[in-house]
């Protein structure tokens, strides 16, 4: 359950302030999948960053799983992320010095999970990369790297998964596979899915879409 109340974000810019988010109100139910859509610069990524506790709001509140993120400092938010949140990024954000297996193990190790290796192997198997455990990101295609990222996100069993343009760096065919994989796992794991995208195909797969325009939520329609 995510509850957003009058969320604002302003950044100082050349003497004045730039208002990126102008008071957003939004509720996301457990297990729901929701797409945040909007033009470049509309504030989508900023909203995602705030929902995931990666950034601090200038005003308003974000309550995730009963925790008010605005009351946490960065370290407490980090612990919160470790327990509740998973990510899939446009640029994959795999650590280049780690193998596929090590990348997936990383968040599990951060949580101190003892069966990190088994879990990581299991989820890499689920994304059909069971035979490429020891490959480094640079030895993989974009689609394969994103599958590793998806395995990493689900392996930690997050309550909420945030995805930032997960198909943005992929061709149509590969993007399609990634979308299928994402929703399939989402369904099986019962995760809440919040994604930011331009892509209609991806947005259409979500139960709900919200439109951001110049920092304001324009419509919120159920699919």
């Amino acid at each position: 359950m995510i509850k957003v109340e009058n969320l604002q974000k302003r950044v100082p810019m050349a003497g004045s302030e730039l208002e990126i988010l102008k008071g957003i109100d939004l509720q996301i139910k457990p297990g729901e999948s929701i797409a945040i859509i909007g033009a470049s610069g509309s504030g989508k990524s900023t909203l995602l960053g705030l929902l995931a506790g990666l950034d601090e709001a200038s005003g308003g509140r974000v309550i995730v799983e009963g925790t008010d993120l605005s009351e946490l400092d960065e370290d407490q938010r980090a612990l919160f992320r470790a327990d509740h949140v998973g990510f899939v990024f446009q640029s994959f954000q795999l650590l280049p010095a780690l193998t596929a297996l090590e990348n997936v193990m990383l968040p599990l190790e951060l949580k101190g999970q003892v069966d990190a290796r088994q879990q990581a192997e299991y989820y890499l198997g689920r994304v059909e990369l069971g035979v490429r455990l020891d490959h480094y990101p640079r030895q993989m295609s974009g689609g394969e790297q994103q599958r590793v990222a998806i395995a990493r996100a689900f392996a930690a069993k997050p309550a909420i998964l945030f995805a930032d343009e997960p198909t943005g760096n992929l061709d149509t065919g590969t993007g399609g596979h990634i979308i299928d994989l994402l929703f399939e796992l989402n369904q099986q794991e019962g995760t809440t899915l919040v994604l930011v995208t331009h892509e209609k195909r991806l947005a259409d797969r979500c139960q709900r879409r919200v439109y951001l325009d110049a920092g304001e939520l324009v419509t919120g329609a159920a699919s």
Partner: peptide
């Protein structure tokens, strides 16, 4: 920096 940013997004605290 990126390495740390990723680790932090995955839940590592600054102390860690």
């Amino acid at each position: 920096y990126d390495y740390v940013a990723i680790m932090k997004s995955l839940g590592a605290t600054s102390g860690a």
